[in-house]
Simulated assay, not measured.
Amino acid sequence: MADLSARDVEKVKFAFSIYDFEGNDTMDAFYMGECLRALNLNPTLAVLEKVGILATSTSSSPLVSVRRMMYAELEHILISLGERLEKEELLPVLTECCPPEDDEGFIPYEPFVKKICEGVKP
């Protein structure tokens, strides 16, 4: 980290902390691509595959989750980051804009983002 400024180190630590769900200074490699993208590093799927972060099938095409995230993670991010919200303030937004969770607790986040952006008037 010698090449990083103190500010960059803080950004990395903050991004990492978002994906440290258990609070034990670890992050599942599954989230590494998202964490790197949050730091504006924008690795391609090929780069992630090359460094072993992205699994591949027998046909060598990357297995990518269909742009989904855990509902609980979205709720945590929206309550904790930016202007603080109370859970009671957030629940109507999530109810209106989020598709239902799947059996694993995941939601596709693109429909959520589209609905939120539709409500934004310039």
Rank of each mutant, 00 (worst) to 15 (best):
A2H: 11
D3S: 15
S5H: 02
A6C: 04
A6D: 14
R7Q: 09
V9K: 03
V9W: 02
E10L: 08
K11G: 03
K11F: 02
K11P: 00
K11E: 14
V12T: 05
F14R: 06
F14Y: 09
F14G: 02
S17F: 11
D20G: 06
D20S: 07
F21H: 05
E22G: 09
D25C: 09
D25W: 06
T26H: 03
T26M: 10
M27V: 06
D28T: 12
A29N: 10
A29Q: 08
F30D: 12
F30A: 15
M32S: 10
G33T: 03
G33D: 01
E34Q: 11
A38H: 02
L39F: 01
N40D: 13
N42V: 09
T44Q: 09
L45H: 05
E49K: 15
V51H: 08
A55K: 14
A55N: 14
T56D: 10
T56W: 04
S57M: 06
S57F: 04
S60M: 11
S60A: 14
S61K: 13
P62N: 05
V64Q: 11
V64Y: 13
S65H: 11
S65E: 13
R67T: 07
M69D: 05
M69Y: 05
M70N: 11
M70Q: 14
M70A: 14
Y71P: 00
A72F: 06
L74A: 04
E75M: 09
H76G: 05
H76S: 11
L78I: 07
I79T: 11
E86Y: 13
K87I: 10
E88V: 09
E88T: 12
E89I: 06
P92C: 09
P92V: 10
T95C: 07
E96K: 15
C98G: 02
P99G: 08
P99Y: 12
P100S: 07
P100G: 03
P100E: 10
E101G: 02
E101C: 11
D102G: 08
D102C: 12
D102I: 11
D102K: 15
D103E: 15
G105F: 15
F106H: 00
I107V: 11
P108Y: 01
Y109V: 09
P111S: 06
V113W: 01
K114Y: 10
K114W: 07
K115N: 03
I116D: 00
I116C: 04
I116P: 00
E118R: 04
E118G: 04
G119Q: 07
G119C: 06
K121D: 06
P122V: 15
P122Y: 15
